[in-house]
Amino acid sequence: MIRTANLRKIYTTDEVETTALNNVNIEIKQGEFVSIMGPSGCGKSTLLNILGLLDNPSDGELFFLDNEVAKYSERQRALLRKENIGFVFQSFNLIDELTVTENVELPLLYLGVNTADRKKKVTEALERMEIMHRANHFPQQLSGGQQQRVAVSRAIVGNPKLILADEPTGNLDSARGDEVMSILTGLNEAGTTIVMVTHSPTYAEYGNRIIHLFDGHVVTENYKEKFHV
């Protein structure tokens, strides 16, 4: 589904050049659940952003669904993104001015789904995440765990092939964290590819494979038996 070849990302500020990713070669297959681990500043989020087509690499190749997308324009990336990828963030990133329903509805609006279908899909997603009873609340009125469930609803509502999760449990206590992990596992079992960045070795174990990053390099890739495609 995703393949990188000699991927590099360099950030340039006024005087300093920082290499965030160097020579990264990984492949993520359809149906996998991949965890990415590593110390702070090792490039985990940078890699996730590039895999999620939020950012372009400085160098190297990036194949997404067999297309070379490394040089895609923002417009082309946006198109691929909205059709194929759902995002879950550590800080939830819900829009404060919109209700739960409206937040979840947003990707469908950008996909141009008609009103009736939108309503149906939003309801399905919210029910699946067991947050339907909060449909008309605003994000600030919800607990962290509830907000993350809304965020996951939003990520899955467009039925994406890939879900990218950036420390989805980072802002949650352990009970809520476990809950989110079981949701992600459930989605993966239903066929969705998941790439998750995390600090927690325990949660990383939920994946079929763990990629360790250090200073922008891939150090190890641990395959697990659970992998079943």
């Binding site: 939020l54 946006a78 001015e97």
Partner: peptide
């Protein structure tokens, strides 16, 4: 908000 909307697929 702009970031979220763009992530969710909004074009400029």
């Amino acid at each position: 908000e702009v970031g979220i909307r763009k992530t969710l697929g909004s074009a400029r």
